[in-house]
């Protein structure tokens, strides 16, 4: 047990050192992550209750349509969004209910 805790501690220290060493890229990536999370929150909110098309989400959120498409594509790849059908020339997407997978 204590071994494990010891290891975890060592790891934490190592990660901290590494973050220091890669300060700039880490900061940059963190910013990216924050922005991504914010945008995703907005997009997901709109698709939680009922499925939406890309232009619908774009219009409601003010995020450019091509960006919306990219985020939906990404979330679809990792199982967070599913396609539910079509509306005219556009596919409909919905946020998966129970979160993660």
């Amino acid at each position: 047990m204590s071994d494990k805790r010891e290891d975890a501690k060592k790891r934490a220290i190592l990660l901290k050192q590494l973050r220091e060493a890669h300060k700039e890229t880490v900061a940059h990536a963190q910013e990216k992550l924050k922005a991504q999370q914010a945008v995703r929150r907005d997009i997901c909110k709109l698709m939680r209750e009922e499925p939406k098309t890309v232009p619908e989400v774009a219009e409601a959120s003010g995020i450019p349509a091509h960006e919306v498409l990219w985020h939906i594509t990404a979330m679809k790849k990792y199982g967070l969004v599913v396609e539910t059908g079509m509306c005219g020339e556009y596919y409909l997407y919905q946020r998966v209910k129970d979160g993660k997978k």
Binding site: A65, L69, Y91
Partner: peptide, 16 residues
């Protein structure tokens, strides 16, 4: 592929 369909990149429309 990324979309699983043929969609145009600007807004996800299925091109005609």
């Amino acid at each position: 592929g990324p979309y699983g369909h043929v969609l145009r990149p600007s807004d996800g429309k299925e091109p005609e």
